[in-house]
Amino acid sequence: MDSTQFSVAGPRDYFALLKPRVMSLVIFTALVGMVAAPGSLHPALAAIALLAIAVGAGASGALNMWWDADIDAVMTRTARRPIPSGLVPRAEAAAFGGFLSILSVFLLALASNYVAAGLLAFTIFFYVVIYSMWLKRLTPQNIVIGGAAGALPPVVGWAAVSGDAPLEAWVLFAIIFLWTPPHFWALALFKSGDYERAGVPMMPVVRGGRSTRRQIFGYALILAVAGLAPYVVGMAGLIYLAVAASFGAVFIGLSWRVLKAADDDFGSAKQLFAFSILYLFALFAAILIEQLAGLHG
């Protein structure tokens, strides 16, 4: 069948390929990186740079959906995505993602600098090739290592403004990097059947729920401490410290409940999953508010 001739996919279906919800988190964390970075960028150029980062993230999402269409088709969470639902042909998703990847990197280079553009290109490469193509089907450490791709946007945003990527930018990277395992493993605990059917070696599938719960708690401890780092390195103030400490304590508390819950009890894991999104948002929002209110930096 000539898929382009008979396609009933609308613009909304192509937009769905960009994983809009992931894109919104990328926009937010990259914005925080941009605001926290020293130096200045014309507001219009900053907005265009942010758009380029968002499109780059979206493009890597489309390439991920192209590569993982077989997995998405058998998982309830992803079966309605544009490719498994038959709306967008795989080849078109690949072309769409590839084209937008190149466009976004060039646009970021034009609007800001080559360091930021290079980091965005690396982010896309890491997410598509290292995570999607290589690690995802290979090891239960897939989302641990692959989490680097999701953690890079604030570094890209920082570099877009300052032209470099100093320690402070990597502190923001570290928070998202350490946040990724407990966030995704909480999800994987109550969706492990899905992952098992799809043949994805997520931690609960390979090592079992008990080991996953222990590891979630371990990461929660490290994350709660790492969450304080922006204050320690002097890039955030007392408001941030209060937010990071209190939300970190709740994160540990919820992870403890996940650890102590029975193997067939997923209520605490669902709670932790929901809270983990709020946790990341709260910490980055605190940095943003402090910077915008002139309370720090």
Binding site: A44, L103, L107, L110, A111
Partner: peptide, 13 residues
């Protein structure tokens, strides 16, 4: 939109 963006970037930079 892309044409306008590239034009804007050119003017601003």
């Amino acid at each position: 939109a892309f044409i306008i963006l590239v034009f804007l970037v050119t003017i601003l930079r």
